[in-house]
């Protein structure tokens, strides 16, 4: 378990005029859960594809379990599990039939029947793939990624299209995988997911890594910085609010109607903000004092909204 699960150096990939990856670096120790977090089009799927041997990089270096996915995809795929974005199966194949087919490719697969039960697909065993709901197709795809007892799994947006119960089931599974020593690289644009699951979070945007670290490190980057958020009508004059606050505090409208005050938040500051609001006839809703979330970090780094 000394070999890193994944090492990526200065990876570049373009599709025609579009730059999908503009030189990213990633390091993932064995048995770790790494979340690639970013909006759609950030380069998450391209990274997964290049790590699993679909496509070749324009430049840079990728090693997965010590192997080059572009030249050793056969050997590599015997050891990894992949859940491609959007799944994949014969349109007419029955759910159980598809999982048995994938299980048959592995030397010591998990019991497909057990996996179907655990993933809540028991009732859909004899349903053709094209008639499964989006969430059921996702769960079947996840089962296909796990059935071969891989040592490293790539889950590309594993919870997209799932209801909250199914999402929590997937989270439970990822935690069980980690506990059993399976490395997990997952992509997501849900910060709750990254915060809940990952040992390491790598935030990507426009094909570059904009931040990396544990969820704790990322959200506590500046220890003194705290925040106060509230919602109100859009377009408040923040210069006035900043003037009312002590020196060094900032106030931003992060999304229309969502306001963020950064600085050491003490009772006096809360009082100043609410008093300022009262003065201007503004009703501050959902007023909250707390530490930063990954979404805040992302917004600060990119100025873009994460959920897209």
């Amino acid at each position: 378990m000394t070999e890193p699960a994944l090492q990526i150096e200065n990876l570049v990939k373009t599709y025609g005029a579009t730059t999908a990856l503009a030189g990213i670096d990633l390091h993932m120790p064995a048995g770790c859960v790494l979340a690639l977090l970013g909006p759609n089009g950030a380069g998450k799927t391209t990274t997964v594809e290049l790590c699993t041997g679909f496509g070749t990089p324009d430049s840079g270096r990728v090693r997965v379990l010590g192997m080059d996915p572009a030249t050793a995809s056969g050997k590599l795929r015997e050891r990894i599990g992949v859940m491609p974005q959007g799944g994949g199966a014969y349109p007419g194949v029955l759910a159980a039939e598809m999982l048995r087919l994938v299980a048959a490719t592995a030397r010591h697969p998990l019991d497909p029947e057990w996996l179907l039960r655990v993933l809540g697909l028991d009732a859909a065993r004899r349903t053709p793939y094209k008639r499964l709901s989006g969430g059921q197709q996702q769960r079947l795809s996840l089962a296909c990624a796990l059935v071969s007892r891989p040592e490293l799994v790539f889950l590309d947006e594993p919870t997209a299209g799932m209801d909250p119960q199914a999402r929590h089931l997937v989270w439970e599974l990822v935690r069980a995988l980690r506990a059993d020593g399976v490395g997990v690289l997952l992509t997501t644009h849900l910060m709750e997911e990254a915060e809940a699951l990952a040992d390491e979070v790598v935030i990507v945007d426009h094909g570059t890594v904009v931040a990396a670290g544990t969820p704790g490190e990322l959200t506590a980057a500046a220890p003194d910085t705290q925040q106060l958020t509230f919602r109100a009508r859009t377009g408040l004059d923040l210069d006035l609010l900043t003037a009312a606050l002590p020196e060094g505090y900032t106030a931003d409208e992060t999304k229309p109607g969502a306001y963020l005050v950064c600085g050491a938040i003490d009772p006096q500051v809360v009082s100043t903000v609410t008093a300022w609001c009262a003065q201007h006839g503004v009703l501050a809703e959902e007023l909250q004092v707390g530490k930063r979330t990954l979404e805040d970090v992302f917004l600060e780094l990119t100025g873009r909204e994460l959920r897209s």
Binding site: E78, R79, R107, V118, S148, R149, P150, A166, L169
Partner: peptide
């Protein structure tokens, strides 16, 4: 769907490819 808890070792890695004849046969049959 109740949330199951997984016994330790359930997903212990044990990767490897099945025999090629078996893979080809199952795929042709499917």
């Amino acid at each position: 769907m109740s949330e199951p808890t997984f016994a330790a070792g359930t997903f212990r890695p044990d990767p490897g490819r099945a025999g090629l004849a078996r893979i080809l046969g199952v795929q042709a049959l499917t």
